[in-house]
């Protein structure tokens, strides 16, 4: 059963269509990444899932309820870390977390352990205005984890974090999904997620242009594998005899060959049979950036139609 199920959802503010025809499903214990440029509709989609706004079209079901009319018991099961999380600067980290714990109807005794978990124990008694960006994000994550939510939504949580902290974030998310928490995480940089998510939805101009696990997206994109062969570049190019797209590098010591995934092994066998001419091989599968650019840069087939309606 899907914890989050979104069917043909649209959201418009007056004539401005922010979301259009979104359909997604996230099974329990899975992590979905929403990827897209700023303004692609990621935050709006999260607000819809949280029930902060109502869709103008379609249906959303979260944890078996309509989030826009759900009761307090529903909100009890949510955790949310907004983009640019803001806290009251004059409160200490511990007081801030205690305030949010009380709002969630929890005993404040759970707070020290949570602060420990996000690595803020030593700074708990300091006021928030002395915190760095990373520490604020940690505090934001701590409040999102209050009461062990069944659904956790993180809006651009890793933007501007250093790699170490990002790793810690993903480790905590991995632990959560392991105990059955469903996670939705957004980012405008696919590489930042380092293939840590089960599902990826790439959004563009309020639509989902690609949805599935990373392997599926790679296969559907059909991006070429890049093979760099070192050796006598000109001779290799000659032997390959017009097949594939080839770039001879400036020093003529190497050649880069773009090759469809299906013909990769054939090409490798050919190169191997060249003997001394080809001294070394380097195989580079399409990167996450390539993949993202492929999907997010692809012109929408219905752009004209959408323009006509808008």
């Amino acid at each position: 059963m899907s914890v989050v199920s979104i069917k043909d959802v649209g959201k418009a503010y007056g004539r401005l269509r922010v979301l259009d025809g979104i359909s997604l499903g996230v099974p329990q214990g899975k992590c979905l990444a929403l990827i897209g440029h700023n303004g692609a509709g990621k935050t709006t989609l999260m607000k819809l899932v949280l029930g902060l706004i109502r869709p103008t079209a379609g249906r959303i079901e979260v944890l078996g309820a309509d989030p826009a009319v759900a009761d307090k018991a529903f909100r009890q099961q949510l955790g949310f870390l907004p983009e640019n999380v803001a806290f009251h600067e004059e409160l200490t980290g511990a007081d801030t977390l205690a305030f949010y714990a009380r709002l969630k109807g929890l005993e404040t005794t759970c707070c020290p352990a949570l602060l420990e978990r996000v690595g803020l124990s030593s700074a708990a008694e300091r006021r928030v205005h002395t915190y760095s960006k990373g520490m604020r994000q940690r505090l934001g994550l701590a409040q999102a984890l209050l009461g062990t939510p069944k659904l956790l939504l993180l809006d651009e949580p890793t933007t501007g974090l250093d790699p170490v902290l990002r790793q810690e974030f993903f480790e905590i998310i991995r632990q959560l999904t392991a105990i059955g928490t469903t996670v939705i995480i957004s980012s405008h940089i696919l590489t930042e997620l380092e293939a840590r998510t089960d599902l990826v939805a790439i959004m563009r101009e309020g639509r989902v242009v690609a949805y599935g696990d990373l392997d599926t997206l790679r296969r559907d994109a059909g991006l070429p594998v890049t093979i760099r062969a070192k050796g006598d570049a000109a001779l290799i190019a000659h032997r390959l005899n017009g097949a594939f797209t080839k770039t001879i590098l400036a020093d003529e010591q190497a050649i880069e060959i773009g090759c469809p995934l299906t013909q990769k092994m054939a090409l490798l066998r050919t190169l191997a049979s060249l003997g001394e001419i080809c001294a070394d091989l380097e195989i580079r599968p399409p990167s996450l950036d390539d993949l993202y650019l492929h999907y997010s840069g692809r012109p929408l087939s219905s752009t004209a139609e959408q323009g006509g309606r808008a």
Binding site: L52, K72, V85, H88
Partner: peptide
């Protein structure tokens, strides 16, 4: 404006 409200509204409070 500070962004606190967005977070508070996701909590189980009316």
């Amino acid at each position: 404006e500070r962004g606190c409200l967005l977070l508070i509204l996701t909590y189980p409070v009316s």
